[in-house]
């Protein structure tokens, strides 16, 4: 379900009922937007277990802060903002822990198919190359700042327009344009280095 289709299940009514304390109405909202929120988080955090934990925290926070949603923007814009800032907070805390040596280097999220190292199991060359490109892409993504990563994720994965991204990230549209442009340039240069 994309953002606009989610709205057609009468999110406004579900929000109104949830604000009145109707937990089941909140459950409807959660199920409608769960995949979208998770998509942002996995694009940012890139570790499945952490993304699941942060997703749960986001929804509990949304439930507790429903009163602060004024209804002056779309619910999903407000929801994405809560999720985005939760992801940014998590990444900053993780980076601080890594810098102080408290955490091992975080391995990026893997799909079930890529659990085994390529050197151990023989795979067709094309799949191996794709896995290596994906690994190089993941490494490049890690080097982006959280804000650049978020802008790129909201654009490429969620398909949000620049002004929507600006509302979510609470910044100017020009800033969104710059961040996305810079993220693309950075990824391009990193992948070009890897290819060469």
């Amino acid at each position: 379900m994309n953002s606009r289709e989610s709205e057609s299940f009468d999110a406004a009514d579900a929000v109104r009922r949830a604000r009145a304390g109707d937990v089941d109405a909140f459950g409807l909202l959660m199920k409608a937007y769960h995949d979208k929120v998770y998509g942002i988080l996995i694009g940012m955090i890139r570790h499945a277990d952490d993304a699941r934990d942060v997703s749960q925290q986001v929804w509990v926070k949304v439930w507790n802060k429903l009163d602060s949603f004024k209804g002056d923007a779309d619910f999903y814009t407000w929801l994405y903002r809560v999720a985005s800032f939760a992801a940014l907070d998590f990444i900053r805390k993780r980076n601080r822990k890594q810098e102080s040596g408290l955490l091992e280097e975080i391995e990026p999220a893997r799909s079930p198919d890529s659990e085994t190292a390529p050197s151990v199991v023989s795979r067709p060359d094309k799949e191996l190359e794709q896995a290596e490109v994906q690994a190089a892409f993941n490494a490049a993504l890690d080097l982006l700042s959280p804000e650049h990563r978020l802008a790129l994720t909201l654009r490429e994965v969620e398909g949000m327009a620049y002004d929507e991204i600006a509302r979510v990230m609470k910044c100017r549209k020009g800033t969104v344009m710059s961040r996305i442009f810079y993220a693309r340039k950075h990824m391009q240069e990193h992948l070009r280095e890897w290819h060469s």
Binding site: H34, D35, Y38, A48, R110, P112, F137, L141
Partner: peptide, 13 residues
């Protein structure tokens, strides 16, 4: 980026 987000297993809603 889209492939990365799609490939990672998620919980069901």
């Amino acid at each position: 980026l889209r492939a990365h987000c799609a490939a990672t297993p998620a919980q069901t809603p």
